[in-house]
Computed example of a mutant assay.
Amino acid sequence: MRPQENYMVIISPGLLVQLMERTGDGRSVSVRELADAAGCHPSKIDALRNGRREKSTIDEALAIAKRLGVDLLVLWEHTGRTVPVPAEPPHIAAVPA
């Protein structure tokens, strides 16, 4: 049995877009650059920006916040008892082994 993954939910896709246009150091960051910093595929960053995806692992969320130059909870909220993990659309969900 695999340990339960800790997920973070993005607060606002629009806020992510704004923060990418002007990061903490005043420069913009591209989807590809942010994906490289987070260690994920650029399509995941694009899906977060467009609202097609709402959740990310805590490690990815931390890396994204760090690259954008903001505190984690400016852009993300923890999942748990009060914030449920959103279900992935069927086309994104993993196929069982």
Rank of each mutant, 00 (worst) to 15 (best):
R2H: 11
R2F: 13
R2N: 13
R2S: 11
P3E: 11
E5M: 15
E5V: 15
E5G: 04
N6M: 13
N6Y: 12
Y7C: 02
M8F: 12
M8Y: 11
V9G: 10
V9Q: 13
V9D: 05
V9Y: 09
I10W: 08
I10M: 11
I11W: 01
S12K: 07
S12C: 14
P13F: 06
G14A: 14
L16K: 07
L16C: 01
V17A: 15
V17K: 14
M20L: 03
M20D: 05
M20V: 06
M20E: 03
E21Q: 15
E21K: 14
T23Q: 06
G24Y: 09
G26H: 02
G26M: 03
G26F: 06
S28M: 05
V29N: 03
S30A: 00
V31E: 09
V31M: 09
R32W: 05
L34M: 04
L34C: 01
L34Q: 01
L34I: 06
L34F: 00
A35I: 03
D36E: 13
D36C: 00
D36K: 08
D36Q: 10
A37I: 00
A38F: 05
G39F: 01
G39E: 02
C40H: 00
H41F: 03
P42V: 00
S43E: 09
K44C: 06
K44A: 14
I45S: 03
D46C: 12
R49N: 13
R49D: 05
R49Y: 07
R49V: 02
N50V: 11
N50I: 03
G51H: 05
R52M: 08
R53V: 01
R53E: 02
R53D: 02
R53I: 01
R53H: 06
K55S: 14
K55L: 07
K55E: 11
S56A: 15
S56F: 01
S56P: 00
S56W: 04
T57Y: 01
D59E: 14
E60F: 05
E60S: 09
A61W: 07
A61V: 03
A61R: 00
L62G: 09
L62H: 08
A63L: 08
A63K: 09
I64V: 14
A65E: 02
K66W: 13
R67N: 06
R67L: 06
L68M: 10
L68P: 00
L68I: 06
G69F: 05
G69E: 06
G69Q: 06
V70P: 03
D71M: 05
L72V: 07
L72Y: 01
L73R: 11
L73A: 12
V74S: 13
V74W: 07
W76C: 05
W76P: 05
E77T: 13
E77G: 04
H78R: 14
T79D: 10
T79M: 07
R81I: 11
R81S: 11
R81H: 12
V83K: 06
V85R: 10
V85D: 09
V85N: 10
A87Q: 14
E88G: 06
E88R: 12
P90V: 10
P90A: 09
H91D: 15
A93M: 04
A94M: 04
V95E: 14
A97C: 08
